[in-house]
Computed example of a mutant assay.
Amino acid sequence: MDLPRFAPMLATPGRLPSAAVDERWAYEVKYDGQRTVVYLPGDGTVLLRSRSGADITAAYPDLAPLGTALGNTAAVLDGEIVVFDDAGRSDFERLQSRMGLAGAPAKAARMARLVPAHLILFDVPLLGTGPLASLPYTERRTALESLGLTGTHWSTPAFIAGHGERALEATRAAGLEGLIAKRLDSAYEPGVRSRAWIKIRHLRTADVVVGGWLPGHGRLSDLPGALLLGERRGGGLRHIGNVGTGWSDSERSTLAGLLHGAASADCPFTPPPAVPGARWVLPRLVGEVAYATRTRAGLLRHPSWHRLRPDLTPEDLDTRTS
């Protein structure tokens, strides 16, 4: 059976819906993984496509048994491929060892044994011969849950209707990435970044030392396009990533003046990061950044500049934790 292609519906970053409309929304845990549309033609095979539409089936041989999970019933499912850490949280860094292996089946099979993948299912835009995309979220979820898709390598986690504040706090306490809020009456809009789906991330903050910068492009070539961030460890400065968002035009200009005034020929990081074109500065500027998570190597994921911290010196950060 030839199944129609579906581009995944996308969520818009935003805030938790207000208490006045809370009961009109469903809340799902936000996972940090690889978005995937799953095609089950009902002949025992499975086809996985990434958000871009690329065929990634061969990268995940551990998900091949899903092809027989619904017998001869055809379906198109929407979900997220994740790898869990030892605490049961999705770990994007571990998942990266599974990504990009569609052209290397032998390595993909080996990695499937070492780093097993898990498919989180949360929508069904087509079931049998009937498209469900135009139906409300609640009806699609009922159809999805009726399929009983729970196995070693896939599951259909529950959602809750209403109680958004409680759900957000529960995910924060559990160390999860956040929530996806979905309007109960919303249709499935293929390829659309919709306000009917809102992603709410928990962000952490860190006090950091600026050790260098990368210039912007074009007319911004004399202004910072990104800052190279470090943490003080034992008197030294360790690179923990770069930030290139979160500031206003006036803040960018202020930072440019401070960076030019602190220019240095020497890299302040130990060990020096491999960042072509970096311009080094004396490590005396302290700022605060917001970020989603850290990698096991300590790098900040999704950092965003928050503010300067003129009340702090780099030495103040030696014993501080983020």
Rank of each mutant, 00 (worst) to 15 (best):
G175C: 13
D86V: 10
A11W: 07
L40C: 14
A75Y: 10
P13D: 09
R252L: 11
G44W: 01
V76I: 10
P215L: 05
G230Q: 01
L176Y: 13
T129F: 00
P314T: 00
E28G: 13
A262T: 00
A263H: 14
T36I: 10
V210Q: 00
G241Q: 02
R233K: 05
L223S: 08
R301F: 07
V289G: 07
A181V: 06
S134T: 09
G42I: 11
A173H: 10
V29F: 06
D85Q: 04
L168M: 15
R284F: 06
V76P: 02
P190R: 07
W154K: 05
S186W: 03
G241M: 04
L95P: 00
A226W: 00
A292F: 01
G164E: 10
I200R: 14
V209Y: 01
R195E: 08
R294C: 15
A69R: 11
F84Y: 14
G298V: 11
R141L: 05
R309Q: 01
Y39V: 03
A292R: 05
P131A: 02
Q96A: 10
G216K: 03
H217N: 04
A181W: 04
L179I: 09
L282R: 14
G216A: 07
A64K: 12
G53D: 01
A59T: 09
S52A: 13
V289F: 00
L285F: 06
P224I: 03
W247S: 00
G79R: 02
A87E: 15
D43Q: 00
